[in-house]
Every structure is written in C-alpha cells, then in structure tokens.
C-alpha cells in the first residue's frame, strides 16, 4: 500500500528533522555561493590581465577543479587537510571550503568570459577619457559584463545547490542523511519509506533549484 507510506513524512518530528537537514545543506551552499562568488569575481578580473604567469596559475586552478569530480574533491580535502596540514575541521566546514573554491574557480571563468566580451571600443573610450585600470574595470567593464554573466551564474548556483547532495558522503548530517535515518528507523513499520522520503527530498531539491533555472532562462532572453 504505497499511499500509506507518505504518513511517514508527517509522523512525529520527521518533517522538521528533514527541513533541519535541508537547512544545513542550504547553509553550506549559501556560504559557498557568496564567498566563492566574491573570490571568483576577483580571480576573473585577474585572469583578464596580461601577466602570463598569473594567468597560467589561475587556469591551472580552474582546470583542477573542473577535471576532478566533486566527490573526489570532497574526499581529497576531507582526508588530506587533517593529515598533511593538521587542520581538523568539521565535515560541514570542509565541504563549505571545497564548494567555495569550486564556485570561485567556475565563477572566475564566467567573469573572465563576460569581461573579455565587452567590446574593445568600450575599453578604448574609457582609456581615452583618462580612466586608470581600476576605474576602467569598476565603471565600465564590470557593470557592462554583469548582464552577460548573470545567466551563467544562475546556472552555476543551481549546480552548486544540487551538488550539496554529496555532503552525505563525508557524513555531514544533511537532508539526505537525515532521510536515511528516518527510513532506517521506520523500516519495519514503513517498508516503502524510501520511496516517500527520497521522493520528498527529490521534490525539495527541485523546488529550490527550479527558480534559478527559470531565472537563468529569463535573463538569457532579455
């Protein structure tokens, strides 16, 4: 009787517990998006500079975070930070760090792409009225490229949120982890509990991510 399974969600403290787990998930994503976004803008600007060494290093950083799957990144930091740097962070903070660095890497590429697509004429006429480099970025290039980078940023944010589902793997008590506990604790009474709990988590993720993808589409059209 599948329909009875949904009662599991509303029984006792189950729903508040799930939402509590969701908050942990969201908090990791939120910090990563804000901190990584700011760092990403900074690195993206640096990547438009002529200095070859700087560009090479930042490119390397980006490619590392692109090539290594996020699961592996999480384990790399989770195992290696305590061992080789003697840095014992709680799992949620390790995850926040990984997501922040990942966000910054991907955001830097978006920012760079948008900055270099501002027409050269705009750079010329900024220089022609005597702006220095930081004024040129601040008043001309960054405002003009914001519009270009927003859709991609929205998609990136949605990707970060989706990827927080991996927190489970390094034992952060996130929404999925809580869900597992609920399923296991009620295995006898609700044998189809997994269907409903994972179904609800599926819907929760969808509800959070869908607005960002709508926004991205809308921004792309404008």
């Amino acid at each position: 009787m599948a329909h009875s399974g949904i009662n599991l969600i509303f029984e006792g403290q189950n729903l508040p517990r799930l939402l509590g787990g969701l908050w942990i998930t969201i908090r990791v994503a939120l910090i990563a998006i804000i901190a990584g976004g700011v760092l990403g803008i900074f690195l993206g600007v640096l990547r438009t500079f002529k200095n070859r060494f700087l560009r090479f290093i930042l490119r390397l950083y980006l490619e590392f975070f692109r090539i290594v799957p996020t699961v592996v990144l999480l384990f790399l930091f989770y195992y290696i930070l305590p061992k080789s740097m003697n840095l014992n962070l709680p799992a949620a903070e390790v995850a926040t760090l990984v997501f922040t660095l990942w966000m910054a890497a991907e955001a830097s590429d978006i920012v760079r792409g948008a900055l270099i697509s501002v027409p050269q004429h705009q750079v010329d006429s900024g220089l022609a009225i005597g702006l220095n480099r930081s004024q040129l970025y601040y008043y001309v290039l960054i405002p003009q490229s914001l519009k270009l980078m927003l859709p991609a940023m929205m998609n990136l944010i949605s990707r970060i949120i989706k990827t927080t589902s991996l927190l489970l793997l390094i034992s952060v008590l996130d929404v999925i982890n809580v869900g597992q506990q609920i399923i296991e604790a009620n295995q006898k009474q609700y044998p189809q509990g997994a269907f409903w709990v994972y179904g609800v988590i599926f819907v929760l993720y969808f509800l959070i991510c869908y607005p960002f993808s709508l926004l991205a589409k809308k921004l792309q059209k404008d």
Binding site: S165, Y198, F202, Y205, Y210
Partner: peptide
C-alpha cells in the same frame, strides 16, 4: 533541477 545522487537513491 535535481541531483543525480537523489535520482539514484530514488
């Protein structure tokens, strides 16, 4: 708009 992990679990 949903993660692969939760798709797999489901």
């Amino acid at each position: 708009n949903t993660p692969l992990l939760i798709q797999l679990f489901f």
